[in-house]
């Protein structure tokens, strides 16, 4: 992993299209400003991870099981 030291107002460029600015630092929190193209969506890692795991799990629903489970719910 590449580790860089930056000050408030400084920036990191990733590839041609992505820029990450250090906007503010307060105690243990860092505010980042991120510019990226639409095809590179930006997520908070923990939220992204939760949805990723849920998608993987939800993609394995079995048709027969599901048919039985939703009986009475339709």
């Amino acid at each position: 992993m590449l580790i860089l030291t930056r000050k408030i107002g400084e920036c990191i460029t990733i590839g041609e299209e992505i820029k990450v600015y250090v906007v503010d630092i307060r105690g243990k929190q860092v505010r980042l400003g991120i510019e990226a193209p639409t095809h590179a969506p930006i997520y908070r890692q923990e939220v992204y991870q939760k949805i990723l795991e849920e998608n993987r799990s939800a993609s394995r629903v079995d048709l027969a099981d599901f048919g039985k489970l939703i009986k009475g719910r339709e």
């Binding site: 939220v47 939760k50 949805i51 849920e54 998608n55 799990s57 939800a58 629903v61 489970l69 719910r73």
Partner: peptide, 19 residues
């Protein structure tokens, strides 16, 4: 929203309201 069957508790079905 996507729907899932809770593993280990097949009577419960859940929805992903976060994504």
């Amino acid at each position: 929203v996507t729907v899932n069957i809770t593993p280990g508790d097949p009577l419960k079905i859940t929805a992903n309201l976060l994504g």
